[in-house]
Write a protein that binds this DNA or RNA. Structure first.
Lengths: 152, 152
DNA sequence: CATCGACGCCGAAGAATATTCTCGAACTAC
DNA sequence: GTAGTTCGAGAATATTCTTCGGCGTCGATG
């Protein structure tokens, strides 16, 4: 388990805000030479602290004007069905995120659709028609915002 | 409203997978010269299709071993309270994401905590003690995974 | 207290990349 | 046709990345 010092945390904070920042600027921001900074970032990647770098897109720009959260309740909670339905949900092109939960709801799936018709077809074809699924409940997402993880 | 051609979509797909890919490699992958590729990416940024580049971190590495979804139901649905509580929730250091929803639940907040005690204190101090909040329901997150947006 | 080794940082240099600029081809509209 | 527009290629320059050797610090050890 890696121990993170003050500089590591500063790097993580900066890279969360802008993953495309140049190594030179990153180094200057934390007060290191570029070479030392690069070694730190490489180490954080190798240790699995940084799991990837992702561009964030505006769903609207892709014609996905409607977002929803679909709460899924399963019929059987045997392990195999649990995994297979999880994989299925994650593999849907409309899926933005999948939560596997404890409690009454087994999965919560964040999806992005073009319109209500698209959402309707999606819920039927990819959710309720699956034999493992007992019941779903769909909620409209009015707004969605992601935050950086606190690194302090 | 920008119209995205096949090359734009390829670029978006690649940048979603790895935001730190070099412009040269990006250009080669879509069959453009680096200069043309860079112009495309700049345009996608300027048009707001790409909203940012983020490093993804493993919460575990930061000592955040416990994730939860907190469903929030408000007492009053007057506009001002709605915005202020939303800003409050988004500003919490434990917050990973905030959904503003239609339906019985007004907000759904994804939080990352160190342990159950941290979560307990968080729910009391930052949720139930707020006057706008009528009721909350906390669900444990067993696993969480994010997907790329479909760009086709 | 001297020595050793490990660790982390710095700085320099060559390699690779980003960025800018200009040019030309393809297309459109008149 | 011709002017205007868009978009990509290529070259030249500026910037950055990446590696490598060396240095200082720190702790352990004899």
């Amino acid at each position: 388990m890696p121990t993170l010092d003050r500089i590591d945390r500063a790097l993580l904070g900066l890279l969360q805000k802008d993953a495309r920042i140049s190594n030179k600027e990153l180094a200057a921001s934390v007060g290191l030479a570029p070479s030392s900074c690069l070694a730190r970032v490489r180490r954080l990647e190798a240790e699995g602290v940084i799991t990837g770098y992702r561009a964030e897109l505006a769903p609207r720009s892709l014609g996905l004007d409607l977002q929803a959260l679909i709460a899924v309740q399963l019929r059987l909670h045997v392990g195999e069905a649990f995994n297979s339905i999880g994989d299925h949900l994650r593999s849907l092109p409309e899926t933005v995120a999948v939560y596997c939960l404890g409690g009454a709801t087994d999965f919560l799936v964040h999806v992005a659709c073009r319109d209500t018709e698209h959402l309707r077809v999606l819920t039927i074809r990819s959710f309720t028609s699956r034999p493992e699924v007992s019941r779903i409940e769909t909620s409209l997402v009015f707004s969605f915002s992601r935050s950086s993880l606190a690194v302090e």
